[in-house]
Design a protein around this nucleic acid. Sequence first.
DNA 1: GCACATGATTTCAA
DNA 2: TTGAAATCATGTGC
Length: 429
Amino acid sequence: MDEQPRLMHSHAGVGMAGHPGLSQHMQDGTGGTDSEGRKQDIGDILQQIMTITDQSLDEAQARKHALNCHRMKPALFNVLCEIKEKTVLSIRGAQEEEPPDAQLMRLDNMLLAEGVSGPEKGGGSAAAAAAAAASGGANTDNSAEHSDYRAKLSQIRQIYHTELEKYEQACNEFTTHVMNLLREQSRTRPISPKEIERMVNIIHRKFSSIQMQLKQSTCEAVMILRSRFLDARRKRRNFNKQATEILNEYFYSHLSNPYPSEEAKEELAKKCSITVSQVSNWFGNKRIRYKKNIGKFQEEANMYAAKTAVSAASVSAHGSQANSPSTPNSAGSAGSFNMSNSGDLFMSVQSLNGDSYQGAQVGANVQSQVDTLRHVISQTGGYSDGLTASQMYSPQGINANGGWQDAATPSSVTSPTEGPGSVHSDTSN
DNA sequence: GCACATGATTTCAA
DNA sequence: TTGAAATCATGTGC
């Protein structure tokens, strides 16, 4: 570093105080013709500095060398040091260290959480994985959408990293360029390493503000993507007809206690290709809506009662097959639930046929099954005494308080021999 | 575009 | 934790 001695720190204390030099002469006006001559020299030097950029490289190099060897150069340098010292003092106060940018930290955190920045997580973002987990991961549509989401997120991630790399490269190139320039300039004007450092910081700040814009727009893109793919409400899809039918069949065949067990929910979820929580939602909505407007669901109830009746009739025709509660109720869609309480129907059939309830499975669905069977009988003429279609399947299970009656209590089972009057005794419409 | 249906979410209570 | 009730937001049929 041959020019190192020319850097400003090498002139520390060489300013006007320790080395009156040129300015002193200029200020007090002493020196006569000698002073005039020096002024002329300084004018020449400054002129040369001003025009140096207009010259060719070789010319400029020659000029620079001539300037460096000029007898007035040290004096001029001192003047520049003095001016610089004053300027730096005025700037210094205004350039305190800034606190870490909260906005930038927020953006960084978000990009990290979304899996855009930081190490790439297996198969995509944490958010997508969380969403998949929240939905149970059972839905094939969901997994397809999530893979689409991951693909798009991966694209964003790629663009983000490419751009970031570009910015960093540009920043480094520019910084190197400026540093070289400043080092070069330090031959002819006083530049301290600290100033170079400060200049580098300024450049970095400028580039990080560009980076922040990049991060911001990346975050926006991720938010849009999220809202499009992962917001459950946005992507609400009606269940397919088959799923709705399965759920309705279960609901109406367990009308006295439409609270599927965890096991039953899982089974239903599996059958309907939906998640357990979707099954829970469905039953929650169904119960409340049924209770709110029983009349409206009358027809639907009748329809599913008829279905159940058909299957029950079919089952009873099989005679001995109905002896075991664990016998799969495969005769018809209504009885197709292959779960523990699917045997309720068979027990009801048996009880209607005059047999006693077998085993301990006098479960929560007895009331509804009895009602269903009454309906079977009404279909075959047993209870056909003047019931209209809308009266066929009466809403049962809802007690006077508006809640579902305790169907697990065997005493709530209405005897089939009571007749249709008793069936409608607890109806609200 | 509107009304209604429907799946999901939120809030609250038990 | 679960379910009731209210509500939101989207889907669907006219």
